[in-house]
């Protein structure tokens, strides 16, 4: 079990995260927040790239900083900006990282072949990565994170650059992996985690706002989400009155999905809220400005 206890992280005067308390058991955890909310800061602390200003992170009761290589041995990490050497092939690059992860050479060769098949890159296993598309590079990144068969898999924006087919494939892979390990997936794309995450963690104002299942989180705005048809002329006024969640043109008018605490009008059709509705509701103040980001 991975435990985040009263963790605060400051960068000089700037407070990136405060009093974070989280508990991770086997399963998929979706870390959901807009860009700049502190997701990457939390992820970097979980991977020992950043050190908490106060508080501690423990794995099975032991401080991860003190565990040192014993902890890093059991984590797999895909950073937001996945770095690689353009002139290396996926095989040589994964073997290089396998050496850093302390995997035995013979085991590494088999594992690399296996993983390249898993991420459907076996046909380009020995081609230089400089000619790869963004999606292919991201798949190399996913493969490297799984090299050491980690007990804790931490993925920061893992679906960036993947096409819809690859996303589905990736989600299935994660669901499968999460049976016997902790998978922490940071994203601002709701659909990435909605269907697969056992729990969603939402961060707002440097603090954990929710850590719950998708259905429990959605229950917070149960009965507040509606859909209705609005004429083009009224669209602008409607937008200023209500929090619109989505809009669609249909049959010569606008089909609006929106959230309000007002008493429902007869023409409004109540609908079940989804995670994206919650996300838009919570972060309706807008994304955090860049200078607030860590």
């Amino acid at each position: 079990m991975l435990l985040v206890e009263d963790v605060t992280k400051n960068f000089g005067q700037f407070n990136a995260l405060k009093n974070i308390n989280l508990e991770f058991c086997n399963g998929v955890y979706g870390l959901l927040a807009p860009n700049g909310a502190g997701k990457t800061t939390l992820i970097k602390m979980l991977t020992t790239l950043l050190f908490p200003t106060t508080g501690s992170i423990r794995y099975d009761g032991e401080d991860i900083i003190k565990m040192d290589e014993k902890y890093r041995e059991i984590i797999g990490y895909l950073p937001q900006e996945f770095g690689y050497y353009k002139n290396y092939s996926p095989t040589s690059y994964l073997l290089y990282l396998a050496a850093l992860k302390g995997i035995h050479p013979k085991t590494a060769i088999t594992r690399v072949e296996e993983l390249l098949k898993t991420v459907a890159l076996d046909h380009v296993a020995n081609k230089k990565m400089k000619k790869f598309s963004g999606g292919m590079i991201q798949r190399v990144g996913i493969a490297q994170a799984m090299l050491n068969d980690p007990k804790i898999l931490i993925l920061d924006e893992p679906t960036a650059g993947l096409d819809p087919k690859e996303r589905v494939r990736f989600r299935n892979l994660l669901t499968n992996l999460a049976r016997d390990r902790i998978v922490i997936l940071s994203t601002h794309i709701v659909s990435d985690v909605e269907s697969i995450a056992n729990e969603i963690i939402m961060i707002k104002n440097q603090e954990v706002l929710y850590k719950d299942t998708v259905s429990n989180i959605c229950r917070n705005i149960q009965g507040l989400v509606y859909e209705t048809e609005v004429s083009y002329e009224q669209t602008e006024q409607f937008r200023t009155t209500y929090l619109t969640l989505s809009e669609k043109q249909e049959n010569g008018s606008m089909y609006m999905r929106f959230l309000t605490e007002d008493t429902a009008k007869p023409e409004w059709k109540p609908v079940h809220p989804n995670l994206e509705d919650v996300f838009l509701y919570i972060y309706q103040d807008g994304v955090l400005s860049d200078d607030q980001t860590a």
């Binding site: 020992t48 790239l49 890093r72 770095g83 302390g102």
Partner: peptide
């Protein structure tokens, strides 16, 4: 950015 992968590996 390879350093991120290097420093989170066992070698660290």
């Amino acid at each position: 950015h390879v350093q991120l992968l290097q420093y989170t590996s066992k070698t660290g």
